Simulated assay, not measured.
Amino acid sequence: MTTLTASYERCRRLHARHGRSYYLATRLLPGWKRRHVHALYGFARYADEIVDSFDVRGDRAAALDAFASQVAAGLAGEPVRDPVLPAFLHTVRSFGVAHGDIAAFLRSMRADLTVTRYATYDDLLGYMEGSAAVIGTMMLPILETVPSARDEAREPARRLGLAFQLTNFLRDVAEDLARDRIYLPLEDMAAFGVTEADLRGPSTGRAVRELLAFEASRAREHYAAAAPGIAMLIPSSRPCIRAARELYGGILTEIERSGFAVLERRARVPRRRKLATFARHLLLSAATGRAELRAVVDAP
């Protein structure tokens, strides 16, 4: 059985390897919170890797079912063998993460085994509710909200998760298609005259670029709707989420700057800009952390 310390380290390494922008932003959180964010990321990434790691669909389904069974057993207080689950379950118990959000996430992962196209944007949103929006709401107890905004903060957290995932979908059109998945609504493709063959081409044609610009505007709407939620978090959590929003929004900006040429190259935020974003928020992160500690020390 994996020790709790080893499990948290496994999750941290998964986060550092696969979620570099988000991992960098997480370093702006108070130290004690970081490992819990790593645990949520490690859980989500591990499930995602199961869905993508086997050539045979039946093998993927069996592996995901086994993982879901271990999650259910762990939530019921039974011992688990999977190396990421001790940290994840400890985080869930420590912060009261909603079990319904966990179930919704696993349903969306299961959908990836059989659903490869989405007819409408509403259909895609249904998938994203489990694969992205609930990640935002699972984060909330860890980040902590100001008392007056506990319920109100849920919707901005959902919208930020949706914004991040739509950004990924636009960036990863070619990568997803290599797995026979298209996360661009079919009715939107039809409206812009885009075929699957157009998405397989070596270059991004005009119709595809116009389609991607339309979907990018939807992502921007989600970013805008998420923005008020940052002020609903306690001060020491705000620099992390501001930085994450800027870094993921930066990926979308790079896509736009390229003229939506996503089939030619994968959009990335330049390393220098990433570090500048981190540095800009670092001083505020340290100051808010010290202020919260002083408030505890000075309390009667």
Rank of each mutant, 00 (worst) to 15 (best):
E215T: 02
A111W: 12
V208G: 03
P141V: 13
Y8V: 09
A132E: 03
A191N: 08
T116D: 15
L275A: 11
R171E: 00
G205N: 09
H15M: 13
A68N: 11
Y118F: 12
H90S: 06
V51L: 00
E187C: 11
E129V: 13
R200A: 07
P83C: 13
G136I: 12
R218N: 02
V208I: 09
A149W: 10
G259L: 08
A111D: 10
S94V: 14
H90D: 00
I50L: 07
H90N: 02
Y121Q: 15
I234F: 11
E155F: 14
D151G: 15
L113I: 11
A197F: 06
A291G: 09
G19T: 10
M128A: 10
L75E: 02
I102H: 01
R273K: 13
A295K: 12
A299Q: 08
A190H: 11
A279V: 13
L170F: 09
A231E: 13
E9R: 01
R220S: 09
A132C: 07
T253C: 14
W32N: 10
A157L: 03
L284D: 14
A157K: 04
V71G: 01
T288K: 08
A157N: 03
L4Q: 08
M138A: 06
F95S: 05
Y23Q: 13
Q165S: 07
H38N: 07
G229T: 09
I251E: 01
R266A: 01
L14N: 02
V269M: 03
V71K: 08
A6G: 04
L275G: 02
T253M: 14
R181M: 00
Q165V: 14
A133I: 07
L170Y: 02
T3S: 08
L293H: 09
S258N: 05
L160Y: 02
V297F: 08
V269S: 05
L252T: 08
N168I: 08
E254P: 00
Y121F: 15
A76M: 06
R13M: 10
P141K: 13
F192I: 11
R272F: 05
L125F: 06
